[in-house]
Design a protein around this nucleic acid. Sequence first.
DNA 1: ATGAAAGCGCTAACAA
DNA 2: TTGTTAGCGCTTTCAT
Lengths: 346, 346
Amino acid sequence: MEVPRKIPTIQDVARHAKVSAATVSRVLSNPERVSEATRARVHEAVRLTGYTINQAARTLRMQRAKTILMALPGIGNPFYSTVLEAAMQVATARGYGLLVTGRLGDDPARWLRDYYVSNRADGLLLFDGTLVTQTLHGIADDARQMPLVASYDDVPDPRINSVVTDNLEAAARAVAHLAEYGHTKIGHVNVRNESDLTKPHQRFSGFVQEMRRRGLEIREDWIQPGDYSMADGRRAAAAYAAMKERPTAIFTANDEMAIGLLAGFREHGIECPRDVSIIGFDDITVAKNYFPALTTMSQPRVELGRVATEALINLLEGNAGDGDPVHIVLPSELVVRQSTQRLAGG
Amino acid sequence: MEVPRKIPTIQDVARHAKVSAATVSRVLSNPERVSEATRARVHEAVRLTGYTINQAARTLRMQRAKTILMALPGIGNPFYSTVLEAAMQVATARGYGLLVTGRLGDDPARWLRDYYVSNRADGLLLFDGTLVTQTLHGIADDARQMPLVASYDDVPDPRINSVVTDNLEAAARAVAHLAEYGHTKIGHVNVRNESDLTKPHQRFSGFVQEMRRRGLEIREDWIQPGDYSMADGRRAAAAYAAMKERPTAIFTANDEMAIGLLAGFREHGIECPRDVSIIGFDDITVAKNYFPALTTMSQPRVELGRVATEALINLLEGNAGDGDPVHIVLPSELVVRQSTQRLAGG
DNA sequence: ATGAAAGCGCTAACAA
DNA sequence: TTGTTAGCGCTTTCAT
């Protein structure tokens, strides 16, 4: 019956090595300030005691948690899980822990900022585009500013650091691809609600922009609402199927809606790409394994997670805050597969 | 030019309310031990100062971080992202933060345990089945035990708390489904490596068990290796395609491999379900939207995340450790869709 | 190069 | 019911 040993503290190590706690601390963070002999003794003592630094104490003392907070709109989305994985790798490599949160309550800004004020996280990786700029500034513009990097589909406030993909351009290219294939009757599936009227999604704007540029008619009824889920893709399919006249090509704001749309169409006897061309957005893993393989705008989501996390940590460790905001735009790429086809006789 | 206010501490609140810090602390954690009048004054002071408790200080003092650590084998996997989301919701609701980690380095047990020893997390949600039981015990059986709940495909050490699905049974039912459809030539795709020889995956065992029970031949070459990725599903497809004699039905250990397998087969002109029936495992979102819609064993992954997290927090808050280990088994469910078919003339 | 001492912000034991 | 005091484990002046 073993007596549970106490978790060793820096004092225990000091005693073992016959030095002061201050010296142990130095060995651990500024080894060059300690003589080689002492250093060796301390390391040995660390090994012997199995000492691990107490982060809570260190955080309290240093006012830095060595932890970053990642706010996600819905982790269930495979898109974000890849981003999360990339972020985690970078964070770990640089000695940071990664807290995740999603449920933001009725005061999202406060919810997030409390992590900072309460000394649980040093900075924020914001992947949740539902927070409007105003709210965002509630986080960043406070006296006790929380360092943050935003990364989502909309173009964030220029005062806020951001790492994004060129959503507007990419959406325009998606439409251009359809147009180049001879399609003129083009539909779109995207989020549509009041907040969007004042601040439309970049992918929506890209769609509108390219349609206008090419002089193509934008038909209201061909723009179907979708919250980025497969279920909403199916719903859109039902809506299109019920129409007398349908678009010959549809651009969905993400791959999951494209898949739902395809699946839904199939149930209505509408075949892709025979009857309709569909282009998605994101290039999630399943896109190339779907049938038909999905044409899509590929997003560098590993890069997104990696770069955003690196930017944040640099911010935290560099001369924080006194530089200009960081704005990084990563390129998307058109990946043509089987779900789009030249319009027959077009 | 606003001078950045200092983050208010409990002392600031105390000063405002003209009470001692201890009283403020009491109001925040044991309100009933404080008179109503004082309580009101303190609350007002909290509001005025915008006070938020300093978690680092509290953690140091109480030796509890109010944070749980979730170890995932690969968050990229959409299966786990759903579990993660469920876990996060429960954790948040019960006042816990959720740290995630994946990169476990060369000493995974130590890596995970250090979170505990260093006072960063109070307990561990272990979703990574690659840690063998021995290693696990390195985490749990230490003098400084880290409370943990394991949840993955293999049946964990009985001394360890676990929340799992009935993988072995479910796998057997998957095979039974194929057999009932008249298939006798049944293949399987699953992880295969040395560690599996000593400790085969439950889904593998379930396959073997049901095949034996029905007196069906288990052909080594029909058991293809797969690391649960779509890419490995494709690889398996290539392997099967190259065979002179192929199975008429295949059970893959997860849906992603099933999708990869289907996509791969299609490229070789092998159609599902016409030429081969395929049953997956997990029922990821895309399964029902795939073409053909995937027959699969549905796993209650939201439940899994929820129940495991609840079990862990109960453990942390209850009379921890002195009870028997918790073992919860959640049921899987057969979902028949289009990717399996009765064997023609069978 | 090393040690002594103070203090980060909180809670809990004890006193009043 | 409330206040005083000590101390969680660490880092960091300031001495030596």
